[in-house]
Amino acid sequence: MTTKVSKGSLFPYVIWIALFVIAPILLVGYFSLLDLNGNFTLANYVNFFKPAYLTMTLTSFWYAFLITLFTLIVAYPTAYFLTKTKHKHLWLMFIIIPSWINLLLKTYAFIGIFGLYGPINAIAEVFGIEPTQILFTDFSFIFVAVYIFIPFMIIPIFNALDKLNPTLVYAARDLGASRFTTFRRVVFPLTIEGVKSGIQVTFIPALSLFMITRLIAGNQVITLGTAIEQQFLVAQNWGMGSTIAVFLIIFMVIIMLLTGQKRKRGRV
């Protein structure tokens, strides 16, 4: 049948997998075992478990957790209400459009908005609050990150809600469940897969943010991503950078297993 035609078509694809999927992972693993002079060592791994790096890892997780939580809190009701609008796919489109504007530009906007003389401080002044520097704080960092991730969280939740059979909701209501009970026992459990993929596309990137931390948080917040960038491009210590990358990959796999298992089984 088509097999012969198609086997040849796999060739460039398999080369791509070998060169850009397998080789980079192996190289990162290899470099994590090298010191600055290129000798084999486990020192990078020992370093990672020293307090400085452990604290950084924990704060990075804490920020990623907060960012994911707030994104979810904003995104779920938005997706829910969107599915109830008349032209829901058109409205979803309007949610997606901002996500296509260059990330850097959106971040840059907040440098002005949160600035000392920016509109937020101007509004605060009307209410008699002294202008303060909002930039370079934890708040500004989390706010901007949440802003960036909201559309990516809304899309999978919207899709899950959209697929939900409305008769199930009617049935629950007919059987006497209150609005809240219907939501808690019917709607939410049935859309949990959408929430899980939303968490996946938010939490992992949130762990590795480095551009927003540099532009918005000054150098107050150091995430795993910032640390990798620092080691690779500033300190030129590729060994240590690779070691952090190895741990980031491990965390990623764990998060994937926690959030993706059921869906994958369903797909196969």
Binding site: L19, F20, A23, P24, I25, L27, V28, F31, I204, P205, L207, S208, F210, L224, G225, I228, E229, F232, W238, G241, S242, A245, L248, I249, M252
Partner: peptide
């Protein structure tokens, strides 16, 4: 994969 990891590993590559 986080893009930082992709970037760093491609740089090595």
């Amino acid at each position: 994969s986080p893009d930082v990891v992709i970037g760093a590993s491609f740089l090595i590559l």
